[in-house]
Every structure is written in C-alpha cells, then in structure tokens.
Design a protein around this nucleic acid. Structure first.
Length: 400
DNA sequence: AATGGTAGCAACCGCAAGGCG
DNA sequence: ACGCCTTGCGGTTGCTACCAT
C-alpha cells in the first residue's frame, strides 16, 4: 500500500485559490474533464498539486454543489445521521443533496456540535451529557431507545445498501450506464469486512435512500415558517434553491399543500431568524430536549415503518415505477414521522415554555397520541426485522 | 480607533483502500 | 501476488471577518 507524494513541495502554490486559478481549473475541467488529477495542474496551467485541485473542485467549484446557510431540515438530518453514522461525513453527505462532506463537517464542528453541547447533549454519543440529566426514568429510557434505534437503524440501512447493491448488479445487466450525470458525490465502496458500516447508495433516481424520504416529507408537508412547504435556501452565492435539490424526487402534489396550519408568509430571512429562535429555545431548555427526543424516536419509528412504502408504495411518487418491491402502506403516515417530530418539537418548545415564545414560533401541531407511540415503536422494530430479513435472495429487490 | 478574542470556513495533511500493470 | 498510483476520507490548521472591550 504505497503512498504517493501528494505534492512535490517545490514551486507549488498553497493556500487560498484566486479567481484566476478557479477560472483555469473550471475551464479545463469543463473542456477535458478532470482525468488524472495529478496530471491536471500542468495541463491546466496551474501551480498547484493535483490534490489541491481535486479538493478545490470537489468542495467549491463543482457546479452541482450548494453553498450557504443550512436549513433547519438539513441541520436535523445531519444530527440524525451523525447519531447513526458518527463522523462519516461522506456518508452523511450522500443524504444531503449538493452539500459536500467538508461543508457538513465544518458545519457540524462549528455550529451543531456546540449547539448540542449547549443543550446538554453529548455531540459524540448524542446522549445527555451528565448522569444527572438522565436520572429520570423517561430520560434514561430515551437514551437507551436512541441507542437501540441507532443500532437497528444501522442494520436497516445496511440492509438497504445491500438491496441497492444487489439491484444494481441486476440492473447493470439490463441497462447501463446508470445516471451518468448524477450530481451526487461518488459512493464510497462498501468497507469489506465491516458489516456495521453503512454504505449508502449514491442517490440515483429511485434509490432506497430513506433519507430522501425524509426530504420528501419535508417537501410534502408544510413546515413552520415555510409557506407552502417550499424551502428556499438560496444563498447569495448559490445557483439553486433547496427545492431544486430536493423536490425532483418528490411529486409536485404535496409541494403546495394548502392545508398547512402553520404556514407563514416569510422570506428566507424570517426562516433563519426562526431557526435561531428555535435553537435558542433548545438551549434554554436542555431538559425539554430529552422529551423531544422521545418524540424523535417515535416519530423516527413511524417514518421508518414506511420504508416499505418508500420502496414502492403509493407515496413513492419519486420512485421510478420499476423500483417497486413491496406492498407498502399509505405514505400519508410520513406526515406523522420525521416532520411530525420536528413540528412536535417546536410545538413542545412553544407550549412548554410558557414565556410567550409562541409569538415567534408558530409551530404546527402534529402531536401523536401518546397511546399510539408504544405500538408504533413495536411496529417499527418489527418492520426493521422484517426488512432486514427480507434481504434474502428470495425477495425481489428494487430494479432501477 | 486599536486590540484581543472568537467563530467560520477554506484548504491542507496524512492515512486507507481500490485500481491497475 | 506485489507494489505503485490514484482517489477518498476524516482530522486539523490557518486565515479572515466579526465582535467585544
């Protein structure tokens, strides 16, 4: 396993890229593709090492990346995925369209980690920091549930990855190439011998990417400060909005759902302010977050229970027809899933505070009945078991 | 206005692993 | 089978802008 000297240190520029360098790199790649990164700098007339060019392209110049502020949904997704995957930034990045692993990593380190810490949650374990915090039965239960959830979810994601791999193999025999213009980062190969590592599929249309289901939920269900459920994330430097990133995998049907009770007339700035407020509320109430996490688990459960419907149920309008493998249940349940959890959370924060934050947080109410939650948890774990078991060769995998 | 501290982010470093001859 | 090359990835650094004093 030799290691190539990345850059002969002589005569090669380091540090920030200039617009001229960017232009050269862009022009070259647009014309020739990057080819061998090592050879690229000389051909493109750049005094940089290939690695530097590759990083610059991957993290900044690539046309299919989005820059700018992370949405609340993206933040939540990152947190969820980090709880499940740890510091596997590339894996996390595959679930956040147009975000690079570097950007996500930076955002985690500079924002989310600190926020979680402030909320009394260990950003590494995603559990309450101190024993004192988790001394209560319910709180301890929350931690245990979350831990279990992570384990099961890892297993489930692994099963999905297997399905994807299998179906890809089959699909490859039928038609190729696949999604040549895919904007997603390249999929890291599955680590051999490490069955606990999730190897999410690159998100071609119709992948079994359950996180896309989350996004589908987000796009289909209006959220606080998000008129019509549309999410406009566009940053001054961005060339695309969040909806562009996400909505292609959803049907247009849910996008403009007028049934929202939480719609607000607001621009992106309003949304940002709101997000800040929400976080501030979290920070004020670390203990409340523990209760929220209970919701998270249950909501996550109801979301995950719909995995089969994601595979091919009525709700999976973003899937190609050929991807159907399961019978599936109503996709409407997604509304009580991840989004529901978030809405619950904001609702929770509003109602529990009692200090008038509701002026700022008009959280929607999708609160599930308490009685349902235990049942849903059971169903969730059962569905995961089913799913994992269903990866036997006898089961038809989705075909892309 | 000057200075020190801090946050945010782009970029670098070095390891690991797959590809290929 | 072996070793080199290339690429991917995660951790870390260093620069810059912003903020408080």
């Amino acid at each position: 396993m030799g290691r190539s000297p990345c850059c002969e240190k002589v005569g090669l520029k380091k540090g920030p890229w200039t617009p001229e360098e960017d232009q050269k790199l862009l022009a070259y790649i647009e014309e020739h593709g990057h080819g061998s990164w090592r050879a690229l700098p000389a051909k493109a007339g750049l005094q940089r090492c290939g690695k530097s060019c590759r990083l610059r392209w991957t993290n900044y110049l690539r046309p299919d990346i989005k820059r700018g502020k992370f949405s609340l949904q993206e933040e939540q997704t990152i947190i969820q995925l980090h709880a499940l995957l740890g510091n596997r930034w590339s894996a996390i990045a595959t679930h956040l369209p147009k975000r690079t692993d570097n950007e996500i990593k930076n955002y985690w380190n500079t924002h989310l980690k600190k926020r979680l810490a402030k909320m009394g949650i260990d950003p590494v374990t995603h559990k309450p920091k101190s024993d004192a915090l988790s001394s209560g039965d319910g709180q301890a239960k929350s931690s245990a549930n979350l831990s279990h959830m992570a384990q099961w979810e890892s297993a489930r994601l692994e099963a999905e990855a297997r399905l994807v791999r299998e179906s890809k193999l089959r699909a490859a025999a039928q038609f190729q190439p696949q999604s040549p213009s895919s904007s997603a980062p390249p999929l890291p190969p599955a680590p051999p011998g490490n069955t606990s590592v999730v190897s999410p599929a690159p998100p071609p249309p119709g992948s079994l990417d359950v996180l896309r289901a989350w996004q589908g939920v987000w796009s289909a269900k209006p959220t606080t400060g998000n008129p019509g459920g549309r999410i406009d994330l566009e940053s001054p430097t961005s060339t695309s909005s969040f909806s562009e990133n996400v909505l292609p995998i959803t049907s247009g049907g849910g996008l403009l759902d007028g049934s929202s009770t939480v719609c607000r007339q607001g621009a992106a700035r309003e949304l940002e302010e709101e997000q800040d407020l929400e976080w501030k509320c979290f920070e004020k109430q670390p203990l409340r977050m523990l209760e929220i996490k209970d919701h998270r688990i249950d909501s996550f459960a109801s979301f995950s229970m719909d995995t089969t419907s994601v595979f091919g149920g009525e709700s999976s309008s973003w899937l190609p027809e050929s991807s159907s493998i399961g019978t599936g249940s109503s996709g409407g349940e997604f509304g009580a899933g991840f989004t529901g959890m978030l809405l619950d959370s904001s609702d929770d924060r509003n109602s529990s505070d009692g200090r008038g934050d509701s002026d700022n947080l008009e959280g929607g109410s999708c609160v599930e009945e308490e009685g349902k939650e235990g049942e849903e948890n059971k169903n969730y774990w059962n569905s995961i078991l089913k799913l994992v078991n269903s990866t036997s060769p006898s089961r038809s995998p989705p075909v892309f």
